[in-house]
């Protein structure tokens, strides 16, 4: 039975008719052509599909689109400022070479942003613990940790805080 889901995605209201079993990640990738959110596994382990639903990081491969009905969803495509300026976390990943093949990157960045929002000054241990649900096969995590530390500092700067509000 098809059903209609309506949600705000990256600031725009969208409405589509989908099968009830449609996953949020399928909705984003196939119905909205927002292919920045990736699917890296089928057991909710890898975190490549992480998006924000009402400000909280969520694995969109294990969320039904209907569960996000009425919610506000932010994907990696919606993280940078409208003028294209990278979010401080995106910029920090580039500066510290926190990505290689780029496939885990959208989920990793979205998780990192949520981690810092909940814990503005994370230690290395906090970061490693907090990103345990995101698998990266390329970087060995070393530079991801550095990037998240730097991204956290940048997110805490007064200008970044002002921009976030």
């Amino acid at each position: 039975m098809p059903c209609t889901v309506t949600m705000t995605v990256n600031g725009k209201t969208v409405s589509r008719e989908v099968e009830e079993r449609t996953l949020l990640v399928t909705f984003l990738r196939d119905h909205l052509s927002l292919t920045g959110t990736h699917v890296g596994c089928d057991t909710s382990q890898c975190g490549a599909c992480v998006v924000h639903v009402d400000g909280r990081s969520v694995k969109s491969c294990t969320t039904l689109a209907v569960q996000a009905n009425g919610a506000s969803v932010t994907t990696i495509e919606g993280l940078a400022a409208a003028d294209g300026t990278l979010h401080p976390m995106q910029a920090a990943f580039r500066e510290h070479h926190g990505l290689q093949c780029g496939f885990c990157t959208p989920g990793m960045v979205m998780s990192a942003v949520d981690l810092v929002r909940n814990n503005p000054t994370p230690t290395e241990h906090d970061i490693r613990d907090g990103l345990e649900g995101n698998i990266c096969r390329c970087t060995g995590y070393h530079n991801i940790v550095k990037a998240v530390q730097a991204g956290a500092e940048a997110m805490n700067s007064p200008s970044a805080k002002a921009a976030a509000e």
């Binding site: 927002l34 920045g36 495509e77 993280l79 990278l86 580039r94 780029g102 990157t105 959208p106």
Partner: peptide, 8 residues
């Protein structure tokens, strides 16, 4: 990096 970091 910019395209990977912005989902493009």
């Amino acid at each position: 990096d910019p395209r990977f970091l912005t989902g493009r």
